[in-house]
Design a protein around this nucleic acid. Structure first.
Lengths: 147, 147
DNA sequence: AAGGTGTTGTTACTTTATAACACCCGGGTC
DNA sequence: GACCCGGGTGTTATAAAGTAACAACACCTT
């Protein structure tokens, strides 16, 4: 992901929505994007360290909450970690291919899957708000490497 | 879920597999099943309390690990909690409808969804091992109640 | 009896996340 | 300007979830 472009995009989106992408929030977003793989809240805190002092956890969690609300990042439940959203600003249902070997996560977006889920769910009267779809396994590279 | 039947079924399965469903593991399984909604590890520990003394966390986590390996329970990642498996012993890919209001979780099993996922995933060369599919939202009852 | 394997008990600790309260800054209003 | 209000931030403390490491035991095999 191109960090500069992503940050500019985020700024446009927030402006449109009158949401305040403050310097602190922007910085957290930048760190998440630059990590280019899921990064944990406490790892972020380390990267925000300034000399001796490191911000306290609520600092980063508040920024993360904001970024999640704005759809600028995703939370990977099975890893307790966060990654930049590859489709910020568009309505989409993501799935995440989580490599248990190298830790890389790919965000994919299968339209069919979203539909199938909707159908199943509507039949049972369930009203979905947030889907969590994560596939743990081996990415192509790590899979090859095991031969 | 019928607790007695489920426990008997679990015992049969473990016997077949030469896996040891010890009294302790059986007890944890029973507590998970009886809870009838997702239950956290520390809540289980409380229920295992005997007078003053409560077992230490590893006790329950080890039992939970065993039960997960045997496919007798599922872990709901988005809740950090565990529920009994509705299809123990059968190969299946489950989805979980998690009500954010009442906390109930329904395990559904849409064949199509599994297929769609497989296809998507194979195209990208990803080799899946464990799927995590959870839909947070409102169950039918809680949805109605909000009107 | 000796040794091996798997289960349990126990202590201590790490990692992840949140509650509660104080402070500060910018905008509008009197 | 003085005031208030609301959102954002700083800080302390604590809760909740999960694991490492080692000792003890139980059962089976040789």
């Amino acid at each position: 992901m191109n960090t500069r472009a992503a940050l500019q995009h985020a700024e446009r989106l927030c402006k449109q929505r009158q949401a305040r992408l403050t310097p602190q929030r922007r910085r957290v977003l930048q760190l998440v994007i630059e990590a280019d793989k899921p990064i944990g809240a406490y790892e972020l805190l380390e990267q925000m360290r300034d000399g001796e002092r490191r911000p306290a956890p609520p600092t980063v969690y508040r920024a993360l909450d904001f970024l999640l609300e704005q759809g600028l990042i995703h939370r990977i439940e099975s890893l307790h970690a966060f990654i930049g959203c590859a489709h910020a600003g568009t309505r989409h249902t993501s799935q995440f291919l989580v490599c248990t070997d190298c830790g890389q996560v790919e965000e994919v977006c299968t339209a069919d899957l979203g539909k199938t889920l909707q159908q199943e769910v509507q039949r049972s009267g369930f009203l979905p708000s947030r889907p969590v779809i994560e596939l743990l396994g081996l990415c192509q590279d790590c899979n090859k490497r095991t031969y």
